[in-house]
Design a protein around this nucleic acid. Sequence first.
DNA 1: ATATTTAACTAACACTTGTTAGTTTGCTTG
DNA 2: CAAGCAAACTAACAAGTGTTAGTTAAATAT
Lengths: 189, 189
Amino acid sequence: MKEVSRKEEIIKTAAKLFKEKGYSAVTMRDIATAMGIKAASLYNHITSKQDILKTIIISLAEEFTQGMENIKSSNVSSLNKLKEVITLHISITSQNTYGMASLNNDWMHLEEQLPYYLELRSNYENEFRTILNEGIGNKEFANSDVEVMLFSMLSTLRSLYIWIPKKDDLNSEELSNSLSHILINGINK
Amino acid sequence: MKEVSRKEEIIKTAAKLFKEKGYSAVTMRDIATAMGIKAASLYNHITSKQDILKTIIISLAEEFTQGMENIKSSNVSSLNKLKEVITLHISITSQNTYGMASLNNDWMHLEEQLPYYLELRSNYENEFRTILNEGIGNKEFANSDVEVMLFSMLSTLRSLYIWIPKKDDLNSEELSNSLSHILINGINK
DNA sequence: ATATTTAACTAACACTTGTTAGTTTGCTTG
DNA sequence: CAAGCAAACTAACAAGTGTTAGTTAAATAT
């Protein structure tokens, strides 16, 4: 019924604070103050601080998994798959830069859900690696060290949450094009 | 003399724990336990938890500043300056992967030293940007968006602390070469 | 109008936090 | 041997932590 539930507001507020100071440094009283209520009132909507973190991270991780699955099953060249991966990162990150900070920096504070998260991440990296290997195999990509390629690209894509908020004048498509160009062609003349 | 080395041991142990869980989630009792002593005993050597973080981060930030200054004043092409920057990151990160995690993830928990840190970082990024702009100006680099180039490279270089420990079989020179190649030429055929 | 639900509140809890004070132990040096 | 000292210890603290219990006030549904 309601456009944004109270619980979603809390999670959003928490994610914003988590981005600024990290999960461990943010107290329930911080979150409550940011919403103009008392800490105990939060518990009418959420079950624990842990649960807030879990919700933020797991939903994002599953978005990435789903996105990668779609790309995998699409019937396009390796180069276009790679471009779609870049677009996927930009798209998810643009919609939730706060949450992406938690995904990147606070995943180790997941408890019961940690093994599940690690599995999703590992699968995602494997799919990414497969795209690169296929592209090398069919001569679309240069025959460089796959692990270095993967590391370099993932590092950049994972850092987008820091950079996108500073450049919100740039639209997603432009960003996707210029980032693709630089990741694929480098900076060389 | 001995006190200095004991202090360094504490800082090293702390940095290792900070990398695993982040500054805020690590307690003085965690650090003490990892050293086989009691928390109160740490205070014979260090003055506060804050001070440990400050020491880790500021010394690394100053290493980067010094390294960039040397590169700036060296009389080589823009391309070679860029390669030296890459080597600088690999070199500093290899020697202290734990500390680099704090630099990247816990700088916001600096207190009095935060403005100083931010100044060093801002200056560093400006010098990096200058190298790229000069390279574009004299046609050594492609005329792409400088900010995207800078962001992409810095993201990769700042993530080295995660990656280097997993690949310690690879030596620094090899890594420097293959990373330089991919950052400069991309992955295209 | 009455009953139910929503969402806030106060008060308190058991535990953990960084840190201080004062003391003890064992090595090194005059 | 005595003195000094580095480096550990125990005990404690005041503040802050996530969370629970029980209550209240207003909005909504019957």
